[in-house]
């Protein structure tokens, strides 16, 4: 990669993470101000979303979960229509019927968002089967957490995907928290990726707070899936620095552990790395940050001014 493309790639990854952070913090602030319902954020995990999604091609498909804003925004979803969905407005991607937790955007290939932990794992094999039977070279990225990896459907999904050679990139965002319970209380091993071996599948763990490492690992995994048409398990080892949902006072979180992960914040770390390497200038990064703030202000304004769905919408979209 030459210097210019390296700079472009770095700017894109940085911008994506900053956008995700700003969007989720605005949604959380709106909740605190009583302007929005509760939401689940992925603050602290931005490198995982940006790194993986930016490695996908435009015809690849994404399934995600209740912490989906990052995957959607990294894919290019309009923050205004997303914020409108969070506020339950008619201009939201799902007409306000999803709310903050289940946003899908078919036109961007971000499909089938399920907030039932493990739901995305159950659906991914079917999407992989469609892609496979249509003879497409697309890859299906399925994002889930360490909590979902403790569900029985994790086994069922990986077993079937490997048995049927389905082109699924399983991305386990191991954020150490399963709702209000620390991962250490629910599983003995620290990592999910070694389980891939049981299914004859490749499994890799990557530092989920290092966006370039995630991006590179995802590129390698995706290239392998395209070549072999077999599934792959990528674990991004990271940390959820906000609570399970908003509001959440996190009194159950060990402050030392939280502080140690906050010190490894993916955005701050990346900024430091880019500046040290001289890839981009401080002014450049500051400009990105300002642009993102303007975007989010505009998104919130658009969402606030948008109408609620008409009463008739209650009964539409039930059946095809």
């Amino acid at each position: 990669m030459d210097m210019e493309s390296r700079r472009e790639s770095a700017r894109a990854l940085f911008q994506s993470m900053v956008l995700i952070r700003a969007f989720e913090e605005r949604a959380a602030a709106a909740q605190a101000e009583g302007k929005a319902p509760g939401t689940c954020t992925s603050v602290g995990q931005e490198a995982s979303a940006a790194g993986v999604v930016k490695a996908l091609s435009s015809n690849d498909l994404i399934l995600t979960n209740h912490r989906s804003a990052g995957h959607l925004l990294a894919r290019g979803a309009d923050p205004g229509r997303m914020m409108a969905e969070v506020l339950g407005k008619a201009t939201g991607y799902c007409k306000g019927k999803s709310g903050t937790l289940h946003i899908s955007v078919k036109e961007l290939g971000v499909i089938l968002t399920s907030t039932i932990v493990g739901g995305e794992l159950s659906l991914a094999t079917g999407v992989g089967l469609s892609v496979s039977m249509q003879g497409s070279d697309a890859v299906v990225a399925c994002f889930f957490g360490d909590g979902a990896a403790c569900e029985g459907i994790f086994h069922e999904s990986l077993n079937l995907a490997s048995l049927w050679n389905l082109p699924v990139l399983y991305v386990c965002e191991n954020n150490q928290w399963q709702a209000f319970v620390h991962r250490k209380e629910t599983m003995l091993a620290d990592h999910i990726s070694p389980r891939a071996a049981s299914y004859g599948m490749d499994g890799v763990t990557v530092d989920g707070n290092d966006v370039e490492a995630v991006n590179e690992a995802a590129r390698v995994a995706i290239a392998k899936i395209r070549e072999t048409r077999k599934p792959f398990l990528l674990e991004t080892y990271t940390y959820r620095t906000r609570g399970h949902y908003e509001p959440d006072d996190q009194t159950y979180v060990d402050p030392e552990e939280l502080a140690s992960w906050k010190a490894r914040d993916p955005i701050a770390s990346y900024k430091k790395k880019l500046l040290a390497a001289g890839t981009v200038s401080e002014a450049d990064l500051a400009a990105i940050q300002r642009e993102v703030e303007t975007t989010i202000d505009g998104a919130f304004l658009f969402a606030s001014e948008s109408p609620y769905p008409a009463a008739e919408e209650l009964l539409t979209d039930v059946y095809a």
């Binding site: 499909i111 159950s122 659906l123 991914a124 079917g126 992989g128 089967l129 029985g152 459907i153 077993n159």
Partner: peptide, 22 residues
């Protein structure tokens, strides 16, 4: 196709496939 005796993934696979053209 035959499948494993795993109703969750059978139905989930069907739902995912149905949403994407099958």
């Amino acid at each position: 196709r035959n499948t494993p005796l795993a109703e969750g993934i059978i139905a989930g696979t069907a739902a995912g496939a149905a949403a994407t053209g099958l």
